[in-house]
Computed example of a mutant assay.
Amino acid sequence: MLTAASAWSVRETIDRLEAAVAEAGLLVFARIDHAANAGTALRPTELLIFGHPRGGTPLMLDRQTSGLDLPMKALAWEDSSGRTWLTYNDAEWLAERHGLGPGSVAAVEAVSAGMAGLVRAVVARGADG
């Protein structure tokens, strides 16, 4: 897993990620508010599930089991000190976990670079914050 500190609240982080995902032409499949659905006290925790067939399909063509970890997911969560984090699975881990072959290298690299770019754009305060 890769984790980055976010300058935003959990909700704002996922809002920003959802907007960045849409702007990148990716599809949002689900947004899950774990804290709202926990039935008990849970610090803010939200999951966004997103992707695009052009990224995931080559991986599933190589090893269909990679569909277990696709589409991509990112979890924004608040720690006990009130700090927000954004965590997601490393595409290299996904390749190793499913035994993806040499034919998937370019797709794994594209997913990895895409995720890193999205996260960088989402977590930092820039001119808009």
Results as ranks from 00 to 15, higher is better:
residue 46 E to K: 01
residue 8 W to G: 00
residue 39 G to K: 10
residue 56 G to P: 05
residue 101 G to Y: 02
residue 55 G to F: 15
residue 9 S to G: 07
residue 120 R to Q: 15
residue 107 A to V: 04
residue 45 T to H: 04
residue 57 T to I: 05
residue 102 P to V: 09
residue 82 G to I: 08
residue 54 R to N: 13
residue 112 S to M: 04
residue 97 R to P: 05
residue 114 G to T: 07
residue 20 A to F: 11
residue 13 T to S: 02
residue 54 R to K: 15
residue 36 A to Y: 05
residue 128 D to I: 06
residue 2 L to T: 09
residue 1 M to N: 02
residue 125 R to E: 15
residue 38 A to R: 12
residue 89 N to P: 01
residue 26 L to G: 03
residue 121 A to G: 15
residue 122 V to S: 08
residue 85 W to H: 15
residue 119 V to A: 14
residue 67 G to V: 02
residue 48 L to Q: 02
residue 49 I to Y: 02
residue 48 L to F: 00
residue 12 E to F: 03
residue 79 D to H: 07
residue 57 T to E: 05
residue 36 A to F: 05
residue 129 G to T: 06
residue 96 E to V: 13
residue 22 A to M: 08
residue 49 I to V: 15
residue 92 E to C: 00
residue 119 V to L: 09
residue 122 V to P: 01
residue 127 A to H: 14
residue 64 Q to V: 12
residue 4 A to K: 13
residue 99 G to H: 08
residue 121 A to M: 04
residue 40 T to P: 00
residue 57 T to W: 08
residue 49 I to P: 01
residue 22 A to R: 15
residue 72 M to P: 01
residue 4 A to Y: 11
residue 104 S to L: 10
residue 82 G to Q: 11
residue 18 E to M: 04
residue 108 V to E: 05
residue 96 E to C: 00
residue 20 A to N: 07
residue 13 T to P: 03
residue 18 E to D: 14
residue 120 R to C: 00
residue 24 A to K: 15
residue 88 Y to Q: 06
residue 10 V to F: 04
residue 20 A to E: 14
residue 64 Q to H: 02
residue 105 V to F: 01
residue 126 G to H: 11
residue 124 A to S: 13
residue 63 R to L: 07
residue 38 A to V: 09
residue 97 R to V: 02
residue 33 D to C: 02
residue 82 G to F: 12
residue 26 L to C: 02
residue 85 W to V: 00
residue 46 E to C: 01
residue 115 M to D: 02
residue 9 S to R: 04
residue 29 F to Q: 03
residue 13 T to E: 10
residue 110 A to K: 14
residue 112 S to I: 01
residue 32 I to L: 11
residue 59 L to N: 03
residue 128 D to R: 14
residue 1 M to T: 03
residue 100 L to I: 04
residue 61 L to S: 09
residue 94 L to D: 05
residue 9 S to P: 04
residue 56 G to M: 11
residue 23 E to H: 10
residue 38 A to I: 09
residue 13 T to I: 01
residue 23 E to K: 15
residue 63 R to P: 00
residue 20 A to R: 13
residue 26 L to K: 09
residue 97 R to G: 07
residue 18 E to K: 06
residue 95 A to F: 02
residue 116 A to Q: 10
residue 65 T to W: 01
residue 116 A to K: 14
residue 109 E to L: 13
residue 70 L to S: 04
residue 11 R to C: 00
residue 68 L to F: 09
residue 126 G to K: 12
residue 4 A to W: 12
residue 75 L to M: 14
residue 60 M to I: 07
residue 12 E to C: 01
residue 98 H to A: 08
residue 29 F to V: 07
residue 71 P to S: 06
residue 45 T to L: 12
residue 25 G to Q: 12
residue 117 G to P: 03
residue 57 T to L: 10
residue 61 L to T: 06
residue 94 L to V: 11
residue 76 A to N: 05
residue 71 P to C: 08
residue 54 R to Y: 08
residue 23 E to V: 07
residue 25 G to E: 12
residue 66 S to M: 03
residue 116 A to N: 10
residue 90 D to P: 01
residue 125 R to W: 04
residue 55 G to K: 04
residue 57 T to Q: 08
residue 64 Q to N: 11
residue 19 A to L: 06
residue 109 E to S: 11
residue 103 G to L: 12
residue 63 R to H: 13
residue 47 L to V: 13
residue 26 L to Y: 11
residue 108 V to I: 12
